[in-house]
């Protein structure tokens, strides 16, 4: 009796171990987009849109000299309305649960590691530095994510979020040295003034951030903030010496946020 029970428990234990390890191996080897079963999908294929814009590494240059508070507000407005970013502060009056993809801040907050004692009048008092996800070339958030819900797109270097997969552990928020990520502490939908039907909203319990307008690049457009920036922002391929961004960088001195951390941000600032 005692023996058979022990043997049963042992076998059961090994089986569970085996199933666990097996599923893990399958998970490790399987490509995330492996074809779902047989049927018509096997013969079907996915393609990029013909108007899709390609680059090796998308980047952005923000010329803060051309910015003022009203342009910054317009940029934020454009981004947040297109991406269904909820106005948590306006709706619930709760700054702690705020969600923002791009927002203007003061120089001393955007560049806290830089000496801010002797700044120009404009830089020391006005919130005119737009900050957003830097789409780092070496993103700490991506390596922190335990489910690959946040990942760097191999094709063009954009750091993306897969809202379907995010488990809401907020490890990426701790890992991001730029405070670029927001968490949905509650259902965001009631706080969206006018839903854009072309872009999904989010649900409670997931992290979100700027996606460099991947959905607009796919239809051949520029990011929304760049369009609204009245020429203060330039967008292009940082790896292409002929691109607009590289031409600008050849002439102007640009800085990045927290370069000492080795994350290699793809957003650069001319101040």
């Amino acid at each position: 009796m005692e023996n058979s029970r022990r043997r049963f428990l042992k076998t059961a234990g090994y089986s569970i171990l085996g199933v666990g390890a097996g599923s893990m191996l399958i998970g490790l080897s399987a490509h995330p987009t492996k074809a779902a079963g047989s049927g018509p999908s096997a013969a079907s294929l996915f393609k990029q849109r013909p108007e899709n814009r390609e680059a090796e590494r998308w980047g952005m240059i923000i010329d803060t000299r051309k910015l003022n508070e009203s342009i910054c507000e317009k940029m934020q407005q454009a981004c947040h309305s297109i991406h269904n970013v909820p106005d948590i502060v306006g709706k619930f009056g709760n700054k702690k649960h705020e969600i923002k993809w791009i927002w203007p801040t003061e120089f001393r907050h955007a560049f806290p590691e830089r000496e801010a004692e002797f700044l120009t009048e404009k830089l020391s008092h006005k919130s005119i530095i737009p900050v957003l996800c830097n789409h780092c070339d070496n993103p700490p958030c991506v390596q922190a994510c335990p489910t690959k819900a946040t990942f760097k797109r191999e094709s063009d270097g954009i750091v993306m979020m897969d809202f379907h997969r995010c488990i809401g552990c907020r490890f990426c928020m701790a890992a991001c040295p730029f405070g670029s990520r927001s968490f949905n502490f509650r259902d965001p939908r009631p706080a969206i003034k006018k839903e854009n039907p072309d872009f999904p909203t989010r649900m409670r319990g997931v992290v979100e951030k700027c996606n460099f307008c991947a959905e607009r690049l796919a239809v051949g457009k520029n990011p929304a903030c760049v369009e609204a920036s009245e020429g203060a922002m330039t967008f292009g391929d940082l790896n292409d010496p002929e691109s607009e961004v590289r031409k600008l960088l050849a002439e102007e001195f640009a800085i990045r946020r927290k370069p000492n951390l080795g994350t290699f941000p793809s957003v650069l600032y001319i101040v």
Binding site: T33, S44, K47, R49, R153, H164
Partner: peptide, 14 residues
């Protein structure tokens, strides 16, 4: 998965 992760948004059938 294909749209979000691979950025391929067009689905071509047989």
């Amino acid at each position: 998965d294909t749209v979000v992760r691979d950025g391929q948004r067009i689905y071509v059938v047989e």
